[in-house]
Simulated scan of single mutants.
Amino acid sequence: MAFWADIDADYVLRYQQWHNCEHIPERVSIPGFVEGRRYRALDDRPHFLMFYDTQDTSVLSSEAYMAALNKPTPWTREALTHFRNPTRDIFSRIAVVGRQRKFASSYITSLRFDLLDEGSEATYAERWVQAAAESENVERVRLYKADALIGNMGTSERSVHGGGPGKQAYLALIEESAPPTEAQGPISRADAATGGGAQRSSEEINRYWLEIAHRKGDGE
């Protein structure tokens, strides 16, 4: 599950306290959740990417998770009213190159996009991801496809923040050990190797630095 949102500037500290101290630990404790992370926009705007890794997408429609979504804590209800321009998507992973490190990657780029030709999905899953992963400082590249059926489910939390699925079907997460750059970065490298840029539409690129990561077993 990936969630992009701006946070009211005067609420950012309170939001970080809520997310660090209550929300991520609560979510990661749910059966099937593996890890939760939050990244902040590299230019320090109050724009954040929050995401959770789960054992599979069925966890995100499980009884335990739906119970949490439909009975938010008072602090959660408060925090969600300060989300602006929210987008929340459920994804299934279709490709990965690289490995998860002991510590979460310090930087991440999210590339959301559609494909002009669905037949080019195989190119992305096989060649584009590999080419992006061969770039300097890249630790792991993951490619996902949205699961609209689960993503569109209505919950009490959604009725507060108002965020639904984004318009793009695909998400690439590029994890790096150094600040990502646009010029000569992994996206440019992969596009040059595969012609991938010509295959994309409706793309959104955001670059972030890590604020917090909490993995199952870290104090659980």
Rank of each mutant, 00 (worst) to 15 (best):
I30F: 03
R45F: 12
Y39H: 11
L60G: 06
E63R: 13
S58T: 13
A64G: 05
E63H: 07
D53S: 10
D44L: 15
I30K: 04
E35Q: 10
T54W: 01
N70T: 05
M50H: 11
R38D: 09
D56G: 03
S58F: 10
Q55I: 14
H47M: 15
Q55L: 14
E63Y: 07
R27D: 00
A41F: 10
Y52V: 00
L69P: 08
E35S: 11
G36C: 03
K71L: 13
I24E: 00
T57C: 13
M66N: 06
T57G: 09
R27P: 00
G36Y: 00
V28P: 01
L60Q: 07
R40Y: 07
Y65W: 04
P31Y: 09
V59I: 06
A68Q: 10
I24Q: 02
L49N: 05
M50I: 15
F48R: 01
D44Q: 14
A68G: 12
L49E: 05
F51C: 05
V34H: 00
R27N: 03
R37M: 15
D44A: 15
D43A: 15
P72Y: 04
L49V: 06
P31V: 07
E26K: 08
Q55C: 11
F33K: 01
G36W: 00
M66Y: 01
A68K: 12
D53C: 09
E35R: 12
Q55G: 10
N70G: 08
L42E: 14
I24D: 00
I30L: 08
G36L: 02
A68R: 14
P31E: 09
E26S: 08
F48D: 00
P25N: 08
N70A: 06
M50E: 11
S29P: 03
R27E: 01
S61L: 09
L42Q: 13
N70W: 06
S58A: 12
R45V: 10
R38N: 07
S62F: 04
S62C: 05
D43Q: 14
T54V: 12
R45S: 12
